[in-house]
């Protein structure tokens, strides 16, 4: 099992990807925030940034970016924050879930649940 993991590895350690940072103060970005790139990659950019900019020409969720890059979400968030700070991407929250008032009453939901269980 170990050998397989070792074989698929590459020499990049995550702390070199993030420059030693392990978290970001940016709290606005969560897993489903949609990312859109605002410019094309320039030569000399970090390869992850290039990939993000290429991927996000169409809006893409943070979690998808993470899966594409095969990097942990926290690392991707750091990378995205770098790009966000330099204005190369914009982050957009998915359409908000309907406001609480519009949600069915929890009691009704509970009744539905009970009813379903009784079936």
């Amino acid at each position: 099992m170990i050998s397989r993991r070792v074989a698929s590895e590459n020499p990049d350690r995550l702390y070199t990807v993030t420059g030693g940072r392990s978290h970001t103060d940016e709290s606005s970005m969560d897993m489903v925030t949609l990312i859109v790139s605002e410019c094309d990659p320039t030569p000399g950019m970090q390869s992850e940034h290039v990939k993000i900019l290429q991927m996000c020409r169409q809006p893409m969720a943070v979690v998808e970016v993470s899966s594409e890059l095969k990097l942990p979400i926290s690392v991707v968030r750091i990378l995205l924050c770098d790009l966000l700070d330099t204005g190369r991407i914009t982050a957009r929250h998915p359409p908000k879930a309907p406001a609480k008032a519009q949600l069915p009453n929890p009691e009704i939901l509970e009744q539905v649940l009970v009813g379903l269980q009784n079936l």
Partner: peptide, 26 residues
């Protein structure tokens, strides 16, 4: 093998542990 293990843990754990894992990795 430790580096491979650490890399796997880094994928699995969130950023509360990530910093420590990165230090160990280093």
């Amino acid at each position: 093998s430790m580096l491979a293990d650490l890399r796997e843990m880094e994928d699995r754990h969130d950023e509360k542990v990530l910093g420590d894992l990165l230090r160990l990795d280093h």
